[in-house]
Amino acid sequence: MIRIVNLTKRYGKFLAVNHLNMHIPAGTVFGFVGPNGAGKSTTMSVLATLLQPTDGQAYVGGFNVVEEPAKVRELIGYMPDFFGVYDNLTAVEYLDFYAGAYNIPKEKRPALIQDLLELVNLSGKANAYVDTLSRGMKQRLGLARCLVHDPQVLILDEPASGLDPRARIEMKDILKELKRMGKTIIISSHILPELAEMCDLIGIIEQGELIALAPVDQIHEQVAGHRVLRIRLTDRAEEAYAQLHYLEGVVHAEVDGNTLLIKYAGDDHGQTELLARLVKNGLPVLSFAEEAGNLEEVFLTVTKGVGS
């Protein structure tokens, strides 16, 4: 659905995005992670047809964002990190304005607006002036605005920024619903655990370069070069440690109560042998699981604070 080829964007001497290459299949929720100034918003602006790349191409639904911006705009719903609203309109009038801007016939708009307000839990505020809404409500109204023309792709730049915990949860629930509806979503956020929960694919960008791109359950392994195995036993964790810690591929092992945490750099076959060894030696293994990894840790490891 989205393809980025050698995308480069310069602002004078500052290189915001450097030869970015990416492919996001249809129906994927893609989490874009990176410190401030890494190039996330720039990439999203290019995809939203708001910025001309210095070099390279970007395609949405097969349409080049520079050559065929009108067709791309039909496919996307874009929510910038900071956006304003027209204060002198009610929520319904606000959505009606954007429905008109997307050439939606007048007779179809009332039902559509009602559905959208229901989706974002703002039915009770339909006739309230937009400036009387809280930040979280405005953010949800903004999301409803993105959906007014039923786009296949949603580009959401920090949709949860500045929201209180309740508003974040509400926003997350709406995004999960949109995921169920089969939308392709690009979302950037600093709330990394939230991304891990929602996204299928994670991309980490720093100083304009994509440094990791992998499914969310593999991103830790790709970045850190090892996977984390959590082995829970009913008893004899120290003995399990003694059995495994010296083996090839085990980078680090530590005991935490009845749990053994292993950083393992070997392959899948080697991993099965670890389990087989424990069972063969009669150790009471309760569970043997690969952890998705702590995304915060991944983020800190990869970015090394360069952007801050």
Partner: peptide, 12 residues
């Protein structure tokens, strides 16, 4: 008002 970018991504 930070509404221009949104307006430019519509069909207008």
């Amino acid at each position: 008002r930070q509404t221009l970018n949104i307006l430019l991504t519509t069909q207008l």
